[in-house]
């Protein structure tokens, strides 16, 4: 049974000085057309690796894909050549927004030049048409005074403006699937809300699917239909968002939710303050889990369904204990 976008049994690793290291082990993710999926995890959990893997942009020399498939409408992207990815997918069907707006834009070209290159390549536009389409793209991301922005260099814009420009470039060629890799990570809090709202609006107006990658729950709880929690490269809980938030089962999910600033009493109730040495062969979250039991040091839990599409990888959850 294959849906619009699916990831199955994906295992990715890297070659380092100390040997090979596995960084991603994802059993299953599926996203429908027009759906926003939130992937939450902390730094180093492998979220960006996943994003790059989808577009086949991992460094060829050091990245290893052990097995798995990433399917868009049934086509496994991992089997495509770079040529095919370039021609068919990148920019045209799948597009990506990166974390750091300053480093994502080429500092020696103006906004117009960078936007123009992409439009020119994908749609063959030139001259006046190119300019007007560029202005359209910038207006779509609610940038005022679009025509003067076209002539500015990235360092002349504010952080929020830059991120909007990047969204404009990413969506300029009618991609149907957007990967947003922590798009608000490097922005001030007040600006964050604006970008989130923008992405949400665009998603609804253009009916695109969005894989929204974040490092805290507060960013995904409202806009996402389904959420996946990534810890150390492994999916530890996934399911419909309201289910996850109100009936969370994995200790890490609890920790994430409790970290959302709320009323004084509820604050940090489930926050984990434990740090133990890791146990090989056991659950990867063992070292921080406040509720660990014996079996957690012996076996590595896999995703099991609890109710409906809500799945979790935790021995406590299996037994219905909290």
């Amino acid at each position: 049974m294959s849906g619009y976008f699916e990831i199955n049994d994906l295992r990715v690793g890297f070659r380092t000085y100390e040997g090979e290291k596995q960084v991603l082990n994802i059993e299953h993710i599926s996203i429908d057309r027009g759906e926003t999926f939130g992937l939450v995890g902390e730094s180093g959990a492998g979220k960006t690796v996943l994003a790059l893997a989808i577009l086949n942009l991992l460094p060829a020399a050091s990245a290893i894909i052990y097995n798995g498939e990433i399917c868009l409408e049934g086509e496994n992207l991992l089997t495509k050549t770079q040529e095919e990815m370039r021609e068919i997918y990148r920019g045209k069907r799948i597009s990506m927004i990166f974390q750091d707006p300053m480093s994502t834009l080429n500092p020696v070209f103006t906004v117009g030049q960078q936007l123009g290159k992409v439009l020119q390549h994908h749609r063959g536009l030139k001259g006046k048409e190119l300019v007007s389409k560029s202005i359209d793209a910038l207006e779509m991301v609610k940038l005022p005074d679009a025509s003067s922005i076209l002539n500015k260099y990235p360092h002349e814009l504010s952080g929020g403006q830059r991120q909007r420009v990047i969204i404009a470039i990413a969506l300029s060629c009618d991609a149907e699937f957007l990967i947003a890799d922590e798009p608000t990570r490097n922005l001030d809090v007040t600006i964050q809300a604006g970008i989130l709202k923008l992405i949400d609006e665009l998603q609804r107006n253009l009916n695109i699917s969005v894989l929204f990658i974040a490092n805290n729950m507060g960013l995904v709880n409202v806009t996402c239909k389904n959420i996946g929690i990534l810890y150390n490269g492994k999916l530890v809980e996934t399911g419909p968002s309201h289910q996850l938030i109100n009936h969370h089962t994995h200790p890490y999910t609890e920790a994430l939710i409790s970290a959302i600033p709320r009323s004084k009493e509820e604050k940090l109730k489930f926050a984990s303050a434990i740090i133990r040495p890791e146990v090989a062969g056991g659950c990867p979250y063992y070292s921080r889990c406040a509720q660990a039991i014996e079996v957690c040091t012996q076996k590595n839990p896999i995703l099991q369904p609890i109710s409906g599409t809500h799945q979790v990888a935790c021995f406590l959850a299996y037994r219905g204990e909290q």
Binding site: Q82, R86, R90, M96, S103, P107, V108, K117, V118, A170
Partner: peptide, 27 residues
């Protein structure tokens, strides 16, 4: 640099990425 990966993610051909994008930064 990130902007090279970004440029590739937009589907720009490698030729453009190298000779236009990257080279200008090396002036």
């Amino acid at each position: 640099e990130d902007y090279i990966t970004a440029a590739r993610s937009y589907g720009l051909p490698e030729r453009t990425v190298l000779w236009s994008y990257a080279l200008k930064n090396s002036v």
